[in-house]
Amino acid sequence: MPTHGSLTKAGKVRGQTPKVPSRERHGTISITRNKDNFRKRFVLKRVPGQNKPGQRRRK
């Protein structure tokens, strides 16, 4: 069974592509994230998934 392309050309395009530096990513502070999660789950009584205003809570 013939192969598709030769192994000598493997990685040619990736090697020619210029390196783009990645941007620095910052996550939320854990205390703030936990406070937001508590408010969503217990104060607003939201369940995982999409929550529309006035939607009944599933049990």
Results as ranks from 00 to 15, higher is better:
residue 24 E to H: 10
residue 6 S to L: 06
residue 57 R to D: 03
residue 21 P to W: 01
residue 17 T to S: 08
residue 9 K to F: 05
residue 52 K to W: 10
residue 16 Q to N: 08
residue 50 Q to K: 14
residue 19 K to V: 15
residue 3 T to R: 02
residue 34 N to T: 04
residue 55 Q to V: 02
residue 9 K to G: 09
residue 40 K to R: 15
residue 54 G to R: 05
residue 31 I to P: 00
residue 51 N to I: 04
residue 19 K to P: 00
residue 13 V to Y: 02
residue 45 K to N: 15
residue 27 G to L: 08
residue 57 R to P: 01
residue 56 R to D: 12
residue 24 E to S: 14
residue 3 T to H: 01
residue 1 M to T: 10
residue 13 V to P: 00
residue 29 I to D: 14
residue 41 R to M: 08
residue 49 G to L: 03
residue 31 I to V: 11
residue 50 Q to L: 10
residue 26 H to E: 13
residue 54 G to A: 01
residue 12 K to Q: 14
residue 49 G to Q: 03
residue 43 V to R: 05
residue 23 R to M: 05
residue 28 T to F: 08
residue 58 R to M: 05
residue 2 P to W: 02
residue 38 F to C: 05
residue 36 D to V: 15
residue 33 R to I: 01
residue 14 R to S: 12
residue 56 R to E: 15
residue 35 K to W: 10
residue 31 I to K: 12
residue 23 R to K: 13
residue 20 V to K: 10
residue 31 I to W: 03
residue 13 V to N: 04
residue 18 P to V: 02
residue 46 R to Q: 15
residue 12 K to Y: 06
residue 37 N to H: 12
residue 1 M to Y: 05
residue 8 T to E: 10
residue 19 K to W: 06
residue 43 V to N: 05
residue 25 R to V: 09
residue 3 T to L: 08
residue 12 K to V: 09
residue 35 K to C: 14
residue 11 G to S: 10
residue 10 A to Y: 07
residue 13 V to F: 06
residue 13 V to L: 15
residue 50 Q to M: 07
residue 44 L to T: 02
residue 10 A to R: 13
residue 43 V to E: 10
residue 3 T to Y: 03
residue 11 G to A: 08
residue 15 G to V: 01
residue 27 G to C: 05
residue 17 T to A: 14
residue 7 L to G: 05
residue 40 K to F: 05
residue 55 Q to A: 12
residue 38 F to L: 12
residue 19 K to Y: 07
residue 29 I to R: 11
residue 5 G to A: 08
residue 17 T to K: 13
residue 12 K to D: 11
residue 14 R to H: 04
residue 58 R to L: 10
residue 27 G to N: 13
residue 34 N to C: 06
residue 44 L to Y: 07
residue 2 P to C: 04
residue 22 S to F: 05
residue 8 T to D: 10
residue 2 P to I: 04
residue 36 D to G: 13
residue 54 G to I: 01
residue 3 T to C: 03
residue 13 V to R: 07
residue 38 F to Y: 12
residue 48 P to T: 07
residue 32 T to N: 13
residue 58 R to S: 10
residue 24 E to A: 14
residue 2 P to N: 07
residue 13 V to T: 13
residue 55 Q to S: 08
residue 6 S to H: 07
residue 23 R to P: 01
residue 23 R to C: 01
residue 17 T to P: 00
residue 14 R to G: 07
residue 47 V to E: 14
residue 34 N to H: 06
residue 7 L to N: 03
residue 6 S to K: 04
residue 55 Q to P: 01
residue 41 R to T: 07
residue 44 L to C: 04
residue 37 N to P: 00
residue 46 R to F: 00
residue 13 V to C: 03
residue 58 R to N: 09
residue 17 T to C: 08
residue 26 H to Q: 15
residue 51 N to K: 02
residue 39 R to P: 00
residue 20 V to P: 01
residue 48 P to C: 03
residue 20 V to T: 11
residue 32 T to Q: 12
residue 12 K to L: 15
residue 47 V to N: 13
residue 28 T to M: 14
residue 51 N to S: 04
residue 42 F to P: 00
residue 36 D to P: 03
residue 51 N to P: 00
residue 25 R to F: 02
residue 15 G to Q: 09
residue 30 S to V: 15
residue 40 K to S: 08
residue 17 T to E: 07
residue 7 L to K: 01
residue 23 R to Q: 07
